[in-house]
């Protein structure tokens, strides 16, 4: 057993447990985006950062419990970092209800970066879903750095994709599109209230596959060129 302290609370856990599991064990909530209990932890979105005794911020989903570790889940530094991360996420994915809700929860009231609607936060859940649960290996990351994106080999329809829809199912940003006003601040006004972001009618939508587009929910977000079109690539490179 490993003994550690989370927000001052002493807790004994088995070796190999992650900090995220430890935190959840105590019923403390911290935000996650790229984590899913059915998939390997990846540590990419950094939303679950917690502060350790030595002042480092580490992602709880990938950090193993260690003897005597002091962990703070909601220290001022952690909260400030999470707010900036959410602001960055919103600036590339303003149409996501999940992100708008996170913004509301964390009092992110503005986005100061120029908005670039990527409709993807590169959390990699779909890639891991496809590889680890569906054993298809149809999609993956290509390029690196700011040019990184998720696609199929050569951007062509994949031979190994079985159209299972697992990638759409797991995606944290394409599940519901926020219908908020296109204010210059990008932060959807309604999220600032405790009420649900979007009208309740969208709550049970769940049209991940076949019916997509028919009701119009998922295509009413801000319009941007298709990610794969040459136009889009050129635009990105000229940034």
């Amino acid at each position: 057993m490993t003994r550690l302290y989370i927000n001052g609370i002493e807790v004994d856990l088995e070796e190999g447990t992650t900090l995220l599991e430890a935190v959840e064990h105590l019923g403390i909530e911290i935000p996650t985006l790229c984590f899913h209990p059915g998939l390997s932890a990846y540590g990419a979105c950094r939303l679950c950062v917690v502060e350790l005794g030595d002042g480092r911020l580490v992602s709880a989903c990938t950090y193993p419990v260690q003897e005597g570790l002091q962990v703070r889940t909601h220290s001022p530094r952690v909260l400030r970092a999470r707010r900036m991360l959410i602001e960055l996420l919103l600036s590339i994915c303003p149409g996501s209800k999940r992100l708008q809700d996170l913004a509301a929860e964390h009092q992110v009231e503005r986005v100061r970066f120029s908005v670039r609607d990527e409709r993807c936060i590169l959390c990699g859940l779909c890639v891991r879903m496809c590889a680890e649960q569906m054993m298809a290996h149809a999609i993956g990351f290509v390029n690196r750095g700011y040019r990184r994106r998720i696609t199929t080999p050569f951007d062509l329809t994949s031979d190994v994709c079985r159209r299972c829809g697992g990638c759409l199912y797991i995606c944290p940003v394409c599940e519901l599109r926020c219908q908020g006003p296109e204010a210059p601040s990008v932060v959807c006004g309604s999220c600032m209230t405790p009420a649900p972001t979007c009208p309740p009618v969208y709550e049970d939508l769940a049209c991940y596959m076949g019916a997509a587009g028919e009701c119009g929910t998922c295509v009413r977000g801000p319009r941007t060129p298709d990610r794969r079109s040459p136009d889009f690539t050129r635009r990105r490179e000229s940034v």
Binding site: Y42, G43, A44, C45, R46, L85, L88, L89, S91, I92, F113, S114, I121, L122, G124, F141, N143, R144, G145, Y146, R147, R148, V239
Partner: peptide, 22 residues
């Protein structure tokens, strides 16, 4: 240099260096 050489895995490095560049 860094926004291009970042592997792009984690958000702060990928998007952060890109935004700092901007």
């Amino acid at each position: 240099f860094l926004r291009d050489e970042s592997c792009g895995k984690c958000l702060p490095c990928r998007e952060g260096t890109n935004r700092m560049y901007e």
